[in-house]
Amino acid sequence: MPTTRVERIAAGWLALEAVGVLVLAAWELVALTRGDSESVPSSLALLVLTVIGAAAVIGFAVAVWRGGSWGRSGGVVVQLLILSIALGSLTGEGADARLAATIAVPAVVGLILLIAAARSAGARSRTGDSEV
């Protein structure tokens, strides 16, 4: 069955977030090559984990585009993790509400899109209609 419009929008949003994670990985690589890190092994490990995270988000985006429920589930987990990072940026010595909002708003949008995609997929599976 073809996916609905809201599922494709949610997949596109996840793909944009994956690009953002890849940009973060590129930034980490530049910092590593400039010698801005105190621990090269830790920086390499963080870089590898960031790239793995980007690959996972890309996988979730592809799965949502194809109508897979596991992609929506993984995408929701990603949004909740991003929201936890936003909450963390509100606490501590360098707390910054603007940074927290900058991080949280895209995650909330993604969460809303993924929930709408799940509802749309459920309605599509009940009716067999691709444009619910």
Rank of each mutant, 00 (worst) to 15 (best):
E28T: 01
E38Q: 04
P41D: 01
S39Y: 11
A25Q: 04
L22W: 04
L32M: 09
V30K: 01
W27Y: 07
A54E: 01
L44M: 15
I52D: 13
T50Y: 00
A18S: 11
G53R: 07
V23Y: 07
V51N: 00
A45H: 13
R34F: 10
A31W: 01
E38K: 09
L32R: 07
L32I: 05
S43N: 03
V48L: 12
L22M: 06
E38G: 13
L29I: 01
L46K: 09
E28S: 01
L49I: 00
V40L: 05
G53P: 00
L46H: 15
E17T: 08
V48G: 04
L47F: 15
S42E: 15
A18H: 05
A26F: 10
L47W: 08
L24H: 13
S37A: 09
S39N: 14
A18R: 06
E17Y: 09
S43I: 06
L22K: 11
L44V: 15
S42Y: 09
A45G: 02
I52V: 15
L29A: 15
E17I: 05
G20P: 05
G35S: 14
A31M: 12
T33E: 02
S37T: 15
L32D: 01
L22E: 15
W27F: 07
P41R: 03
V21W: 05
L47Q: 04
G35I: 14
I52Q: 05
I52K: 14
S42V: 05
L44A: 07
S42I: 08
S42C: 01
A54H: 04
G35K: 00
L49N: 13
S42M: 02
V30R: 02
R34W: 02
L47R: 00
L47D: 00
L46Y: 11
A26N: 05
S43G: 11
A54F: 02
A55S: 15
A26M: 08
L32H: 13
L22V: 06
V51T: 05
T33L: 15
T50I: 12
G53F: 11
A31I: 00
E28Q: 14
